[in-house]
């Protein structure tokens, strides 16, 4: 596991809570704003950043993240630009883990080896590439083993039976549990089904399990983060960026709105476990 990810999970464990990961699309609504928004996320207490590398045809994403990608592309964002944003982030925030999320085509076009080299140089800690299942591991997963970046697997409600250990065979960093059969930003899963799935995964792997998809409220985030090792929120965050962009708010105002929201998530995750501790005392 990358040292930043390990430290982040260790710190959360010490505080008896899960981590909070936040997804934003690089360059949404533009490069400059994107950097300010990222700074705000860190200040608000976010443990991990999932930085989306925009793609015109994001097959696994719902309307909010599709729109975020298109806003970024429209503002001129590219894969190279996304890596530059990662690089600037890393200079300012040496300790916060940063995961690059995206689709394979822009990487394939950029070149797998140059991408791995540049992503690592930019200070990325891991990769989530949505449309590369283990059946296509020769493309990027295997080459990435020469880098220090983790290759993060997605497990979904349809990953059942023998497929679960097969998918997790080459997983590293953490396991991203996609809590619904569906796309980002749509329905929410039942707590019980998440809890069962995390138990299933934990029987096969020792890696931390972080849950995402369909998490909107602070309460949901707090509850879900406590079931495994963390929660990732994306669509609800980029919706705030979309609204601010539509209202022509300044970069500072947008960053503030986003960080107010993520702070509410971070606080809920911290206090959720504080409550649990109190219960334990009795």
């Amino acid at each position: 596991m990358s040292s930043r990810l390990a430290a982040s999970f260790a710190k959360a464990k010490q505080e008896n809570r899960g981590i909070l990961g936040i997804f934003v699309s690089a360059g949404d609504p533009d490069a400059n704003a994107s950097i300010k928004i990222l700074d705000g996320l860190v200040e608000s207490g976010v443990d991990m950043i999932e930085l989306g590398m925009p793609f015109s045809d994001p097959m696994a994403d719902g309307p909010a993240i599709q729109a975020a990608s298109l806003r970024a592309i429209k503002s001129g964002m590219t894969l190279k630009g996304s890596l530059e944003i990662a690089c600037q982030f890393r200079e300012k925030h040496p300790d916060i883990p940063l995961i690059l999320m995206g689709y394979y085509n822009p990487i394939y076009r950029y070149g797998v080896e140059p991408f791995l080299e540049d992503a690592q140089a930019a200070g990325a800690d891991g990769l989530i590439i949505v449309d590369l299942p283990p059946e296509e591991d020769k493309e990027l997963c295997e080459p990435s083993h020469n880098s220090e970046m983790d290759y993060i697997r997605l497990i979904t409600p349809t990953t059942l039976g023998d497929r679960l250990p097969f998918v997790l065979e080459k997983a590293s960093g953490f396991i991203y549990y996609v809590s619904i059969a569906g796309i980002t930003g749509t329905k929410s899963a039942q707590m019980e089904s998440i809890s069962n799935a995390i138990n299933r995964i934990k029987q096969v792997s020792d890696l931390p399990v972080v849950t995402g998809f369909g998490i909107r409220t602070a309460e949901q985030a707090a509850h879900i983060a406590s079931l495994g090792n963390g929660a990732i929120v994306g669509s609800a965050v980029v919706e705030i960026i979309a609204e601010s962009d539509a209202q022509n708010l300044s970069v500072e105002e947008t960053a503030k709105k986003v960080s107010d929201y993520t702070k509410s998530l971070a606080d809920a995750i911290s206090s959720h476990n504080a409550e649990k501790k109190i219960f334990k005392l009795f």
């Binding site: 097959m59 299942p133 296509e136 059969a181 569906g182």
Partner: peptide, 20 residues
């Protein structure tokens, strides 16, 4: 057996779809 026609083809889909 991997669905390749030379370098083309394959199965580039999200994990949710893979079992289907």
């Amino acid at each position: 057996e991997n669905g390749r026609f030379g370098i083309h083809g394959g199965r580039f889909v999200a994990e949710t779809l893979m079992p289907l």
